[in-house]
Computed example of a mutant assay.
Amino acid sequence: MNTDNAPFNIIALGLLVVIIAVILIIFFRFVPIGLWITAHFSGVKVPVTTLVGMRLRRVAPQKIIQPLIKATKAGLVLDINELEAHFLAGGDVNMVIDALIAAQRANIDLEFEQAAAIDLAGRNVFEAVQVSVNPKVIQTPLISGVAMDGIEVQAKAKVTVRANIERLVGGAGEETIIARVGEGIVTTVGSAQKHKSVLENPDSISQTILNKGLDSGTAFEILSIDIADVDIGRNIGAKLQADQAEADTKIAQAKAEERRSLAVAQEQEMIAEVQRMRAKVVEAESQVPLAIAEALKSGNLGALDYYKLENLESDTKMRNSISGEDLKESDR
């Protein structure tokens, strides 16, 4: 034995082991042997190359093979390429398979293409199949309507629906059903002459709503509509009358305030006019002594005439004073 080449042989053997380990890791990374063995013994014949191709297409093989095994065990015949295409389109392959199995057990005619379309439309296809088998109850919120006599009637309804598989793609959802039922309640209550007739016969609401075919264009089929609760609300008619009376009162008060303001303005204007006239009188009276002095100076007025004028003015003041005292006594 050549001991000189022993270190070289050890290094070569180590490199060979590393290379073999890397090759095995890469092989098992791209070739899921365990999944292939599981599929083979489950009756799903899928080539290894197909699994490698899924790896290269960045498709997780277990998300395709596991649902395919489930479908095969349930007796469904599906194409693996369809499952992979649905996965690449963003669908949930496992949910579609569950829906197909549930539909088969319930004797519902549901094809893979239809189930895939429902899933890609954003609806829960498995839940839709369940609702198709077991009808679902949708409860509306408290909806108010006003009868012709002005009394508000509040009602709640329970709508029993069954999923319509054929209309799941493009059909309206639960919100539309609730809105249409609410519209039917408001219409029925509003067309009643008296609110008592609605309270005595709540079935009239159900019959009116059912006769309108509210499930048209929706993803559901309405089986029944049951009025769960009916209550009396406010007297809307009386409230409207009270609000109208209050509004009329405010309008009348505003008009009265406007007239009062106009009268005050006119009074202030008259007072101002009187004050202007008094100012003019005072100004004219202040000119009288100057005029008398000018007349005396020019000889147009004699001294005797001046004294007569003074006497006349004194008599006038005395009479005004006496008449003022008489008015005060008469007021007393």
Rank of each mutant, 00 (worst) to 15 (best):
I205R: 03
V186F: 04
L168N: 07
V146G: 09
K136S: 11
V133E: 15
R167P: 03
V181A: 08
G190K: 00
Q193I: 05
P135Q: 03
K194S: 13
D149L: 00
P141N: 10
I151H: 01
N164E: 14
S144D: 13
P141A: 05
S132A: 09
K136P: 06
V198F: 04
Q139K: 00
K196T: 13
Q193G: 06
E200Q: 10
Q193K: 00
V137N: 06
E221P: 01
G171K: 06
G182Y: 10
V189Y: 03
I143P: 06
D215F: 05
K156M: 15
T176Q: 09
I178E: 14
N201I: 08
A172H: 03
I205M: 13
S216M: 14
R167K: 12
T218W: 12
I165F: 10
I138R: 00
S204F: 04
E175S: 00
E166F: 00
E200P: 02
I138T: 06
S204E: 07
N201S: 08
R180N: 14
D215N: 08
D203M: 04
P141Q: 08
E174T: 13
G145T: 02
A155M: 05
S132M: 11
D203N: 12
V133W: 09
V181I: 10
T140D: 14
K194I: 09
I177W: 06
L210M: 14
G182C: 05
E221R: 01
L168M: 15
V189K: 01
V131H: 07
V161E: 10
V133D: 12
A179P: 04
I138Q: 03
Q154M: 11
R162A: 11
G182L: 09
I165A: 11
T187Y: 09
S132Y: 09
P202E: 11
N134M: 05
N211T: 15
I209R: 05
G182P: 09
D215M: 07
L168R: 07
G173E: 13
G173Y: 06
G182R: 02
A155G: 08
P135R: 09
H195F: 15
G184A: 10
S144A: 14
Q207I: 14
P135V: 08
G213M: 09
